[in-house]
Design a protein around this nucleic acid. Structure first.
Lengths: 336, 336
DNA sequence: CTGAAAGCGCTAACAT
DNA sequence: ATGTTAGCGCTTTCAG
């Protein structure tokens, strides 16, 4: 392995000069610097990140916390899209990304300890149980942090405009003449709370009375749960005319259940998803859903984090709202 | 930040003793060692991976190369499942995973240089253009490497048993009475070549004559391409009775096209996918497909790599075949 | 059983 | 314009 010292010897110069030349800076003779760089390239020099880090305290490594209860977070397109955009954006800025986990090396490390252990410059947290004490420890630490789809006090976050999303959906449904609107919610998080609040508010604005039986607790990304909730809704004496699902993926469980009952979509019952995964456009009928701009969320979170790392003084740990748009598919029937 | 030196001072011992105690080894007085460990814990000591690495040359970090031409590799469930299982398995063994990329820090680094720069102990390569010179440079290097779904000479690999997969499918189709079998292939890779060879071979074994017009070049994971190939197949004077797709995801493009023609599945035409993504079980009709055990592939590749890293002498850089199973869905009609 | 000391590869004052 | 030097935090011989 070629190191700075080798280059220095080969050039007949000091290691300091080589280091300077390699950074293209300082008061080195441009000629000398050029020569050094050429020789370094010729010798196949590759810098050693650890040695550099040990001195500079900057790893150019971003940690990503991406665990979920079902331990299948990565398998959902929505999170994959975010991860992919984080990766791309980080690379553009010269950062690598490493997953944070409970490290099982010698001792068990907490998320925070793991991040410190690897000297991560910052951390992006998504798709995780945000009430986990370890997560709280991490966001409360001195490590720059950005959360996605969850807000902590004084922690930078990038969240979907859930209020707007549900508002757009309900307004659209009202416009289409729906009065009996059911809503299967997701896990009890602040995201869900915002959506539910927006649901009630927008219904009220449209003079739609909400039947409490129509609001069912569900889970995100679990088709089976949505299927069960759908069954209950279909068995009500007065059926809803439309069902809103927590997300497109779990909506698939609803479709299965609806078809089991011999009902057609949207002729017999309308459905609406959330997220706008690719699949929602590939299926027939095309799903009516609120398209989340997950790529933009990943990019925004990454930019924010890097700014927090590189310009801590002038970067606010605030919240960034990312809005989506209603995809008018073919799963909502007009009742007018 | 607490370091070994701090602990040593607090204990009134040397840093050497502390280091030894922290590793639970060597000839240290058990009492002393215990006391040191307690104090270290109390002081909130977290080891520094870089400093350790600088000395030991072991990073406990595995690089994952996961780029594809469409730069959306992570968005496909199949690859996500592999990534997830790699991550889980690596964590179990105390390794972290970091994505390898073209690093855009100061200079542009090749994949190999990037891996060296970060001192990665080993690398898993998947979902990438394996003919890329940079990939070749990486597998040819001294860094332990495992490839997934591709084989290089003398490089450990974990690949699906593609021959068996296509064989199982064709045998099943023959059993169901199909004679006019179309096959939309994927990109021209060794995987595809194996599948195609197996296709011809198994057809021959079943005394099925292959109409060359029935074999169409397609692409993996691109619904649009499969849709176009489907259109061509449907316009033949003698239509196939069944179409085999490169993968489940791109099969969706075929479904769309078939429905556009007003044909029903499987009454008018049968279809078969490949991969067995979750979706294949959620859609109705349930898709007949060959389920790849992607989780097992990720786990196997990771175990192999760690073995290669930790026991280079006794680990063979061989090929591991991972087989799947036929999922008899509802998209193949019996013609008997 | 414990400690001293060298050094991993690099950066960044501070000299010259 | 170039060189000297002192570490960064840790491991690991080799002494004591």
């Amino acid at each position: 392995m070629v190191k700075i010292k080798d280059i220095a010897e080969r050039c007949g110069l000091s290691i300091a000069s080589v280091s300077k030349a390699l950074h293209g800076e300082s008061d080195l003779n441009p000629e000398t610097a050029k020569r050094i760089r050429e020789i370094a390239a010729e010798m196949g020099y590759i810098p050693n990140a650890s040695a550099r880090l040990l001195k500079t305290k900057r790893s150019y490594n971003i940690g990503v916390l991406f665990v979920d209860e079902t331990s299948s977070g990565l398998e959902h397109e929505y999170f994959s899209a975010i991860l992919n955009s984080i990766k791309d954006e980080a690379e553009k800025h010269g950062y690598d990304i490493t997953f944070i986990s409970h490290h099982f090396g010698h001792d068990h490390l907490s998320f925070y300890e793991h991040a410190k252990y690897r000297n991560m410059d910052g951390v992006i947290i998504a798709s995780v149980d945000f009430r986990d004490p370890e997560v709280v420890q991490l966001v409360d630490s001195e490590i720059p942090t950005v959360t996605i789809d969850y807000e902590f006090n004084d922690v930078a976050s990038v969240v979907s405009d859930n209020v707007q999303g549900v508002k757009d959906i309900v307004n659209y449904l009202a416009e289409m003449g729906h009065k009996r609107i059911a809503f299967i919610t997701g896990d009890d998080t602040s995201v869900t709370q915002k959506r539910v609040a927006s649901f009630y508010k927008t219904c009220a604005e449209n003079a739609i009375e909400v039947n409490d039986e129509y609001v069912k607790k569900g889970r995100y990304h679990i088709p089976k749960i949505s299927g069960e909730a759908t069954r209950e809704l279909l068995s009500l004496k007065e059926r809803p005319t439309v069902i809103m699902y927590p997300d497109d993926y779990s909506l698939l469980g609803g479709i299965t259940e609806i078809e089991k009952h011999g009902l057609r979509i949207p002729e017999d019952i309308s459905i609406v998803g959330y997220d706008g995964i690719k699949l929602s456009r590939l299926l027939r009928p095309i799903i009516t859903t609120y398209v989340q701009n997950s790529t933009e969320k990943g990019i925004t979170a990454t930019k924010k984090l890097i700014s927090l790392i590189e310009n801590p003084k002038i970067t606010l740990a605030d919240r960034t709202l990312v809005s989506g748009r209603l995809q008018q598919g073919e799963t909502v029937r007009s009742l007018k």
